[in-house]
């Protein structure tokens, strides 16, 4: 047999009397404030840590310009080191053609050589070496 909707309602209404035991909310309030104080202390701890860290950094960096310049230098160096190819990469790079030209030179005739003065001379011009 099915209970009617009204009977279901009455049965559910009985659950209105389900309550926590006597004194429950006294303990509840105590725990609530313990948790609240613990959380506030934790938050204060984090804020305090951040304050100390900021002060420490402030003492060591005399000016914001020095800090900025240091950061910029570090960034440039890091970019250079990261972009430069490694030794292994260089070995694998494709060879590129170098532009060059071979010019033909007329052979020197013996007569021309004879006309040259090849004797060691003490009359060398400035910069010439004497033998």
């Amino acid at each position: 047999m099915k209970p009617s909707i009204e009977e279901i309602g009455s049965l559910l209404a009985l659950k209105r009397h389900e309550r926590p035991e006597e004194g429950y909310f006294d303990d509840f309030l105590r725990e609530f404030h313990q948790r609240r104080r613990a959380e506030e202390a934790r938050n204060r701890g984090l804020k305090g840590w951040w304050k100390d860290a900021s002060a420490w950094l402030g003492e060591r960096l005399t000016s914001k310009w020095a800090y900025g310049a240091g950061l910029a230098y570090a960034a440039v160096m890091a970019a250079f080191l990261l972009s430069a190819p490694s030794g292994e990469q260089v070995g694998n790079l494709p060879a590129t053609n170098v532009g060059h030209e071979i010019r033909s030179v007329e052979p020197i005739q013996v007569e021309q050589l004879q006309s040259l003065d090849l004797r060691p001379s003490s009359e060398g011009s400035t910069g010439e070496q004497e033998f």
Binding site: M1, K2, P3, I5
Partner: peptide
């Protein structure tokens, strides 16, 4: 709820 409780309702 009606159908769930029908076996226990007299």
């Amino acid at each position: 709820l009606q159908s769930q409780l029908q076996d226990y309702w007299e």
